[in-house]
Write a protein that binds this DNA or RNA. Sequence first.
DNA 1: TTGATTTATTGGAACGTTCCATTTATAGGC
DNA 2: GCCTATAAATGGAACGTTCCAATAAATCAA
Lengths: 350, 350
Amino acid sequence: MASRAKATILDIAREAGVSKSTVSLVLQGSGLIRPETAVKVRKAIEDVGYVYNRGAANLRKAHSNVIGMVINDLTNPFFAELAVGMERVFQAAGIVPFIANTAENPVRQEEVLKSLMEQGVAGLIVSPARGTTPGAFRRIEAAGVPIVFTMRRLPESRIPVIAPDNHRGAFIATEHLILKGHRRLAFFGGSSDLVVYQQRLGGFLEACETLGIPIADRTIVEGETSRKGGIACLETALAAPEPPTAALCFNDAVAFGVMLALRKRGLEAGTDFAVVGFDDVAEAEHYMPALTSVAVDTAGLGERAAHVMLKMIQSRTTRAKDHIGAVSLVVRESCGQSRNTRGAGMGDAA
Amino acid sequence: MASRAKATILDIAREAGVSKSTVSLVLQGSGLIRPETAVKVRKAIEDVGYVYNRGAANLRKAHSNVIGMVINDLTNPFFAELAVGMERVFQAAGIVPFIANTAENPVRQEEVLKSLMEQGVAGLIVSPARGTTPGAFRRIEAAGVPIVFTMRRLPESRIPVIAPDNHRGAFIATEHLILKGHRRLAFFGGSSDLVVYQQRLGGFLEACETLGIPIADRTIVEGETSRKGGIACLETALAAPEPPTAALCFNDAVAFGVMLALRKRGLEAGTDFAVVGFDDVAEAEHYMPALTSVAVDTAGLGERAAHVMLKMIQSRTTRAKDHIGAVSLVVRESCGQSRNTRGAGMGDAA
DNA sequence: TTGATTTATTGGAACGTTCCATTTATAGGC
DNA sequence: GCCTATAAATGGAACGTTCCAATAAATCAA
């Protein structure tokens, strides 16, 4: 049982009185071996406390079933939900994805990617850190390892992206606010070096444009994409002479921050100031007041990303179509009386 | 650049006009090679787009600088914070830990552990899933791979544990409530199959005992360790004829749920009902009202666990002392007027 | 029986590294 | 100049698996 040196396939072979090749075949579940032999071998495997050495196997096989998931902020529950979706499909495929966190740090990201590559991953699902340099993935692409980006894309890259329809999400949310009668609107949180930010802000601006909100009545406050950032955004915005009466927030974390800051001032989200979030994390529903938010089907995006990855690996390609996920506005209490409207979404896109 | 078949050490050797051994030496940063040679080799490495094959190396070396982190609920921000602490120290040691999620499912945990073992991990940091069978780690122990548990322990196991002083944390929190004048107290959330639960509940009960709260005035409601669970607990408790006026919650998530449920009933945490959380996650401070909670120095525990692991690996042992982390009560607004008291903690223990 | 066919099993080479024991080059001492 | 000591570079075996080609055993047709 507590054999010191770790057992190999040869130990099993000796124990079971067969050749190493036979053991290998059994290990791979080949139908070529006689059932009784298989049983004998399996018993030996148990007896010697064998653990399969995937490194050695990969050396010969040249494709590993390891998939790396590189995430820029594990602390944001959104990414945890995304990860959960992916794991569901990988689990079904008998694959254990390894998650690594870059903490929004491109240098750390470099290390993480290097390590994953050295480990011989079959594919990489990445939400790139802010400030990732354009060439960061060139080596990996050159090595022929499939990559898919989730949620975020790099400015020029040809790597497939799985993301929600940010522009449309922001558009319908803004539209909702305007139709509720708000005329002075704000966009809170995020920073312009992110492509997502530009998309969401773009949707916001287009809605303003289309529905006749003059530029002077639009407030844009960049900030951290966290509760803290949201608090700061609201403070800044309310300090203006003609403050906004409603805000679309870059994500739910920012929205939660805004609601807290409101309450600190004795104001109530929904009645005194309308706030809409983005992502619709699980918490949004249970908040008080419940947060109106753009639902992006987080887990679904995770599943989709995993499926795309699986297909890429299987078909030995490094290309795939982008997937822009449908979004919908979930109207709750944080922007006025709670009618149960649901905005429309959309399907696949280039 | 885009060389199809992946480059090996021999390709580099050819390119640089040296032997594979020399390349290997350069790769390991050996001081034995002439600096100019090293430069030449490093250039060749760049040129051919080489990626190190750690699997092959481990085959020969037999120890692998990969560390696995097995977490039972990635969705709980507490674990994300824990992970962040660990990563800090691993990063400094040039190690990239791989995180895997078990989603509180022992079967999935089994798969995850198997996969990690096959990958040849040097060590495992684990927060075991609920319902883990006592023998689940025997194989791994037998293989001589160091394990440390964080936060949770298994009933009988000899595996070292890094965890906060749950008993004391619950004790000082309960004491605080009693000194505030509360006489009917509740303990909300968690379930009795967890050792942590027993420790926290134990602290609660001891405080009640010591400070003279009769059994009839103690309410214990088990439940999910989430917001949803907290909501349910409060509903149950308030339905009683003589409902409690204060509650210690199993963790902050439960506490948040309780506060939401209070608000839904038009009650305010702090004035109408006192609530104390456990873990002191980042969010506690920014909540409204700010949550009084038992701080466990989450990131610090993570760092500690990582250090212990590193030491175990280095000294080739599979044993280590438990570490029970100091706790302190951070008094905020959720249990009455906000005096800024801090309870005392404690240091190492057996 | 014999040869052909199918079914099970096996030895050996290969995968990309490390590391030991050697060899070769360089320098130092006289 | 030669011998020794040191520095730098090298060839080959080994690590634990897979997979191909080959062998051995069993079955069948004639």
